[in-house]
Design a protein around this nucleic acid. Structure first.
Length: 489
RNA sequence: GCCCCCAUCGUCUAGGGGACCAGGACGUGGGCCUUUCAAGCCCAAGACCGGAGUUCGAAUCUCCGUGGGGGCACCA
């Protein structure tokens, strides 16, 4: 089962943030590299100068680092096959194009954009007008400075067969292929050329990438074969569909998700929202891969051992955020109190609250199993750090009690707490339970007005602990205020 | 329009000719616990896209449909 050390690469184009699909591709590449004791390369594919965004590459790397996906060679760490910025390799790509030109496997094309656009309007691919131009004549036109591209001379007859690891043999009739561009008129290579040339130069053994590349796989194989290079193992991952399972995730869907659900397909957003990288990784790993029919919980380290290309699934997977929340909740519950405290603190600060360490640490056990993301913490425990709370008066009324009865209960509770020798959890509980009995109330009925009074909300962390942490003074003050609200009801 | 890929519960999936009246997980419903909400535990409902064929036997192999997805740039 264990194979030779693989050299794999993640090769994003720096046009935006890292999203789920890309991250999952990166993850699988990383896992396979580790699994085989090989190397993961990071290569920035920036040959499209129109879409290039300077900040994007850094953002991409930040997201990968956060997830724990470490690369062995790349633009920042260097490596034996530098440079890892594709645009810096353009001179080599031009040489490669020239090589194919010399071999008669490529040709100059002088057709302008208008003509190509016309062709496309007629639902027709490039008509190969320049294919049979005499090479000497073509060279002359190039020398005279005429704008041109270099196209691949695709075979017109026969068929091309390529083997994909997950799908077996894929065969296309060569008549379906067109004479695609290798080198643009700005002298930069197109993906097909650049990626293949770099993959070969960098000794890539397995190309693990998204399914969207499958249709151009024959082109890539043909390029490799034209140069006489050995082909890597091809492995095309299925696409991710949007939640619900219908359709690919679009930019619009992504935006909607961000707003409405508090979820996101962007890794940096998940980070901002207080998700744990290990939860995200565990979740992503399972979209298109599974070990067996029993185990679903994996740390990154465990995945490195368990992962295998053989267990990859070729069918598309729908993104399911409730499953992410499940992994996230589980992971949060496993964290130490100090880790949770450190994790949630920024979110209190963001709300303008100033939590002190000691109190924060006391609160953690109360909310740890109630929060999903760190971002959830303030809505559970923000009231601890607010000077006062403003409950909705109607919420102070307990189930099956009238406002007047609730008021009475609240006042009695307050009275009880005033006289308590200490304000610790256990005595508080004991006293309130006794009071409920005495008043002939269910504990919940007595506690509801108290809870809402001190926390300002209907659901809160466990009340007795809450009272202790809040302290007598603050708790009594809040109950006093709530009394007034109930009287006005 | 043309090309390519995919097809098991709502979702992620196990399964690869007999071990499957199809297993797990998320979610959903119900119950227990209980001071609200969670967490935890227990139970339940829930799927092999359709049709032919191969075979003693098909979720599993083949073909044809259908459905879904991806791609058809001087973008990656």
């Amino acid at each position: 089962m264990s194979s030779d050390p693989a050299r794999v690469r993640f090769a994003p184009s720096p046009t935006g943030h890292l999203h789920l699909g890309g991250a999952r591709t990166a993850l699988y590449n990383f896992l396979y590299a580790r699994q085989t004791g090989g190397k993961l390369l990071l290569r920035i594919e920036d040959t499209d100068r129109k879409r290039y965004r300077a900040a994007a590459a850094e953002g991409l790397m930040d997201s990968l680092r956060w997830l724990g996906i470490a690369w062995d060679e790349g633009p920042d760490v260097g490596g034996a096959f530098a440079p890892y910025i594709q645009s810096e390799r353009a001179a080599r790509h031009r040489e490669h194009a020239q090589q194919l030109l010399n071999a008669g496997k490529a040709y100059h094309c002088f057709c302008d954009r208008n003509r190509l656009q016309e062709l496309r309007r007629g639902r027709q691919s490039y008509d190969r007008l320049c294919r049979e131009l005499a090479p000497t004549a073509a060279r002359q036109r190039v020398q005279s400075g005429q704008a041109h591209v270099i196209r691949f001379r695709s075979p017109k007859e026969g068929s091309t067969t390529v083997r994909d690891l997950l799908r077996g043999e894929i065969t296309v009739r060569n008549a379906q292929l067109d004479d695609f561009v290798l080198l643009k008129s700005d002298g930069f290579p197109v993906y097909h050329l650049a990626a293949m040339a770099d993959d070969h130069a960098m000794g890539i053994t397995h190309v693990i990438r998204g399914e969207e590349w499958l249709p151009s796989l024959p082109k890539h194989a043909l390029i490799m074969r034209a140069f006489g290079w050995p082909e890597p193992t091809w492995c095309h991952l299925s696409v991710l569909k949007k939640p619900g399972g219908k359709g690919k995730m679009s930019k619009r869907d992504a935006r909607q998700l961000d707003k409405a659900e508090g979820h996101s397909i962007f890794i940096h957003k998940l980070h901002e929202r207080g998700y744990l990288p290990e939860a995200v990784v565990n979740w992503m790993a399972l979209m298109g891969w599974s070990l067996d029919d029993r185990r679903e919980d994996f740390t990154l380290a465990e995945l490195q051992c368990a992962f295998g290309l053989e267990q990859l699934n070729a069918s598309p997977a729908a993104v399911d955020f409730s499953k992410l929340d499940h992994f996230q909740g589980k992971r949060v519950r496993q964290l130490s109190a100090t880790d949770v405290a450190a994790g949630i603190k920024p979110y209190f600060l963001r709300e303008g609250l100033k939590p002190d360490e000691a109190t924060l640490l006391k609160i953690v056990p109360l909310i740890q199993e109630r929060i999903v993301t760190f971002e959830d913490a303030p809505q559970w425990a923000g009231f601890f750090f607010q000077p006062h709370v403003s409950p909705e008066p109607a919420h102070l009324v307990a189930k099956k009690l009238t406002p007047a009865e609730s008021l009475a209960a609240l006042q009695q509770a307050r009275q009880t707490l005033v006289t308590l020798p200490t304000f610790e959890r256990d005595p508080v509980e004991k006293a309130l339970r006794a009071l409920a009995d005495e008043l002939g109330l269910k504990l919940g009925q007595l506690l509801t007005p108290v809870r809402v009074a001190v926390s300002g909300q209907r659901v809160s962390p466990p009340l007795f602990e809450t009272l202790e942490i809040l302290g007598r003074e603050s708790a009594l003050q809040r109950m006093e205020n709530a009394t007034k609200l109930l009287k006005d009801l």
